[in-house]
Design a protein around this nucleic acid. Structure first.
Lengths: 336, 336
DNA sequence: CGCCGCTATGCAAGCGTGTGCAAATGCTGC
DNA sequence: GCAGCATTTGCACACGCTTGCATAGCGGCG
């Protein structure tokens, strides 16, 4: 019944009594059509239910309008909120998002990426914490523009968006100091992601500047369970910290739950905590976590605006963007 | 530099010393090519970095391999986990996911959907709670197959996947009853989504079967805040419930935080709680929520398997699938 | 009136593939 | 050696669209 397939520009042209070119031009912004024919075409198109075939258009124009989002741990609060904002912004700029899930470690990632290349995606945005070098190469070699979020890769034609992790870490140290904490610790995962490492290094350095050592713990995959595991280790250790900076809000949530429910300690009286990301759960009553907000909106904005700038000629184009992560004060750090 | 654009089958053919058709057939499963030429083509393709252009292929084959995921509240735990599983499953079946974000209420949704139609997406999967009727129509009218998840639309050529919400609700009532609770309540949002309504109705009916009335509260948008608001209302009301079934885990989390932190009550001693979805946070130490698990894997599996069955001829095809939501026992309901 | 310049339109050549059809090739059995 | 058949290959057209080029129309100006 509705298997009547699709309407082509040809049919619209026939119905409107014009040439196929006229139809094409009607749907091409900036083309030369008279007001009158444009109207007739639009009406005919409306009646027939015509939609420009972007496969064909992409073929001739050599630009597909497809942007590919390469993401791992998609179901994680921070990632999913970034994904939401990006898809929203992209579709508001007349592009469309194709998402590639890199959770599996078998060959399916490569296969998926090749899929994206086959669709001639114009750009890839990599949200994945640790994209293979090979993925990046593949994208570039196939003429895609590339945006890396929180990732360390220096190369031509790619935009990197990072956060001022070191500054944030310093702010955290300062907050802890004012709260009277002198036994600092850092809770990290074993993932080794650049941004996580940067926070850790920044924290250690800022603490050292005040003459404070830092107990660093790295364990497991970035997430809630990792926080709980670290809580167990730290709180049974010889020297209990009284302030811990968690590399991630998820880690912080796990850490807080561990500290409270397994050790009966209270926050911030016994131990102060600061997280990073400002995921939704950080604001929930059970946590009320002081943390640093990922400037998700800004990231998305800068990304699509960079995609919009087609002049990828000058290799001197500003390719590294460092955004600010603002501290959100809640209740897990004692007032100074 | 890498702006050398793309390699076409023509070039591969030249390099391999065969006709372009041979190249095409090499990359078309089931086509007739001799082992020998296939090998030569593959090698040439490898060296040149050739990737079949799916825009062109989609054009002639009249199937794009694109599946469109229409989703609202993408950053929500349940939605994002469903999205993750779906993208994974899709790309494992040689398809690719295009996501359309319907959070904004302005025209951008329609625009985005039209975008998907323009790419000749083969199917749309609607995760959005309340898709406009017009969206559904548009998809169908353009020859897409349609999968509706937790949604009530009876029509030809579409697959509906629902949960046995009523059974779950009945199970919840039973659990509450065994725990000795006699003052039941249902915490719902004002969204009016079919599945939410089904849970509510099922709960009320099952309670009535035992002669128990149910205090029903509907408020705001589905989410954490909604749960907190309802907690405030219910706990200041004349008759405090001692058992509440929350339409969603997010609502349950908000409700629990409200009950605990604003009213100092304890769970499950003072009030038993059951949620729905089994989001990750439900298993966190601060909640340890007894809830019903969305069979996310099963949903994704059924979806792509249905997409794989190309015989959409018989209108009598099984188009409604009711999956089971299993109860996950944790700590928010007293043992029977 | 003739020419210029501008805008609107149509023609036709692509864009990179898939695929039906016919020709070519190779193999088998007589 | 030849008919008969299966397999492989190439040709050429189709898919639906964009766009350069040429042409037609038209108003203005000298």
């Amino acid at each position: 019944m509705s298997r009547k397939v699709f309407v082509s520009a040809q049919e619209v042209a026939a119905k409107a009594g014009v040439s196929r070119s006229a139809v094409s031009r009607t749907f091409t912004p900036g083309a030369s059509v008279s007001k009158e024919t444009r109207l007739r075409v639009l009406q005919a198109a409306e009646e027939l239910g015509y939609h420009v075939n972007h496969l064909a258009r992409g073929l001739t124009r050599r630009e597909s309008g497809i942007v590919c989002l390469i993401v791992s741990d998609l179901a994680t609060p921070y990632r999913s909120s970034l994904l939401r904002t990006l898809t929203d912004r992209l579709q508001n700029s007349r592009r469309v998002a194709m998402v590639i899930n890199t959770d599996r470690s078998d060959g399916s990632v490569d296969r998926a990426l090749q899929q994206a290349i086959r669709y001639r995606a114009e750009a890839s945005i990599i949200l994945s914490g640790m994209p293979d070098r090979s993925i990046i190469d593949l994208c570039l070699r196939n003429g895609q523009r590339l945006v890396l979020i929180n990732r360390d890769e220096e190369q031509e034609g790619i935009l990197r968006i990072n956060l001022d992790d070191a500054v944030a870490a310093q702010t955290a140290v300062q907050a802890f100091w004012r709260a009277g904490c002198r036994h600092l610790a850092f809770a990290n995962s074993a993932a080794g992601t650049p941004s996580l490492l940067a926070r850790e290094a920044g924290f250690v350095a800022a603490a050292a500047a005040r003459g404070l050592p830092v107990l660093v713990e790295r364990q497991g995959a970035t997430g809630y369970e990792c926080g709980r595991a670290i809580a167990r280790r730290m709180m049974t250790g010889r020297q209990r910290p009284d302030a811990v900076f968690c590399a991630t809000d998820l880690i912080a949530c796990g850490f807080m739950d561990g500290v409270r429910h397994e050790f009966g300690l209270s926050i911030p009286a016994d131990v102060c905590i600061v997280g990073f990301d400002d995921i939704e759960q950080a604001s929930w009553g059970s946590y009320d976590l002081t943390t640093f907000a990922q400037p998700v909106d800004e990231i998305a904005l800068e990304t699509v605006s960079w995609l919009g700038a087609h002049d990828n000629l000058a290799s001197g184009e500003r390719s590294l963007l460092t955004l600010h992560a603002e501290m959100i004060w809640r209740k897990t750090v004692r007032a100074g």
